[in-house]
Design a binder for these strands. Structure first.
Lengths: 273, 273
DNA sequence: TCTTCTAACGAACACTGTTCTACGAGCCGA
DNA sequence: TCGGCTCGTAGAACAGTGTTCGTTAGAAGA
């Protein structure tokens, strides 16, 4: 902060500090600053207002809700996610993996902002930008349109959920919890489970604890991409006949037949991250 | 509620109402009743205490935290999830799909309780019960141990996240939002996107909106299971070499070599649902 | 110069989780 | 039977929260 000039005495100060006037984007920027410093729970209307040298009521002239403010913050953060120059279908799995890690990098850089994304439908410009890129890529690969469309849904969930859990993990670390001891405890707890009721779990305790967050994240993405791959027309005769929901008709394996009209309302799914 | 008998005058009432004394399980049961009626946000210490005819401070003798109360509630709810009698490896995909839908049925029956599960490591008895079953099943199928272990992680995430999103969807419905009009709006919004920036998305608007929550859920599970399937030793020469995180070593495709010591701390992942 | 409009804001409302402290009933040893 | 002690209970309070109301003060338009 540069040294402040003394106020000219006969200029009665407009507000106590002649800041730039309040605006939506200024509020959002400030809120993100608070978010980065203290996490989502620290972003209160009072806290943001205080940072702007005003009261909470003033914010409501530019933002109708705390929820709306959160949405705006998410959109702003999402804009930071960089995408490759163009889709490269010949290495689509690598490219998607890279995007997933880029998204996680950006999301976790802003604490637990991913939590905002979890229940919301991505309609912001930046979110659609990512959706557009991925959708284009998946179609170029040759996936059936409906598979590609629904895959975005799932991809967004993976990204958001993992970003959130990565934050939980980091938070515990930052709060001074000795994670080494914590996980040793957990491992011991699994080992000490009654063998007659939890034989497998007890035997697999070490495997359950294996791998850090990034490895597990990479695994989830890999499994998901391999699953997608099985929907490629080339792999049409899939290893096993595709299962579906217990009673409802699940996704069939015939490829182009996907775009069929079943006429249901869309689910409340959040793709795009 | 049955008609209350008048209090016998010469019996001075113990507290104003001669309820059974406070206890952990009574508090949890009451909290779940409030949860079912008003959602997780409605579960406040005051609200639960009021339901028990007492003040909020009284709860803290049996429950150290609101967070702990939430964990106990989750554990209690998870206990409702029914499992098949025994693993049937020959139809493992169907069985897992059934369990996923059973879990979602129970979770969504209790509003947004799934939110509690999202950031927490599943160590409760009921959660471990499910983990034990699934782990056993996956190993019997012949999946490499480490793949099976990490798969539980991913499965838990799918279940929790989808249950939460299903609740968001149902909530909007319950709050009187006309979802038909809402999704029509959304569809129109996608259709009206500038074609030069979002050509694919615009073209695919209908496919993006296709399918209700259950169909999308079934699709995610199916993709995941097909991905898992590709890790079966029989399928060892997978269509493409397994990709990994950009710089880190991802899961290799050799099967039994998994149980290796990489020595990292476990991630903050929540499996089990 | 006077009016009109609107962004800004102080104060307040109805809440929240949690803690402190006093109260009072039940049990135990004498 | 009686004191003393423990421990579950609960009222009040603290420091917060999101949001709204009614007022004010500054700028724009006539």
């Amino acid at each position: 902060m540069p040294a402040q000039m003394p106020a000219i005495p006969w200029h009665k100060p407009r507000k106590a500090d002649p800041r730039q006037p309040l605006s939506r984007s200024l509020i959002v920027d400030t809120a993100i600053r608070v978010l980065d410093a203290e996490g989502l729970a620290g972003v209160t209307m009072r806290r943001v207002a205080q940072e702007l040298g005003t009261g909470p009521a003033s914010l409501y002239a530019h933002v109708s809700n705390k929820e709306e403010l959160f949405d705006l913050m998410l959109e702003q953060v999402t804009a930071e996610i960089r995408l490759p120059l163009r889709p490269e279908p010949e290495r689509w799995k690598d490219q998607i993996t890279e995007i997933c890690f880029e998204a996680q990098r950006v999301l976790t850089a802003h604490r637990d902002v991913a939590l905002v994304s979890l229940g919301s439908i991505p309609v912001g410009e930046s979110q659609l930008r990512i959706t557009e890129f991925l959708l284009d890529l998946l179609l170029q690969v040759g996936l059936p349109p409906q598979v590609a469309a629904w895959a975005l849904d799932a991809l967004g969930q993976i990204i958001d959920t993992d970003a959130y859990e990565a934050w939980v993990y980091n938070e515990r670390l930052a709060r001074g919890t000795d994670l080494g001891a914590y996980f040793d405890q957990l491992r011991g707890y699994l080992h000490d489970l009654p063998a007659e009721r939890f034989p497998t779990l007890q035997r697999m305790a070490d495997a359950m604890m294996e791998g850090d967050g990034d490895q597990r994240y990479a695994f989830k993405i890999e499994v998901f991409l391999r699953g997608l791959e099985s929907f490629l027309p080339a792999n049409a005769p899939t290893p096993t006949p595709p299962a579906a929901a217990p009673d409802r008709p699940g996704p069939a394996s015939d490829d182009q037949a996907w775009h069929g009209p079943t006429g249901g309302a869309a689910g409340a799914a959040g793709a795009g991250g």
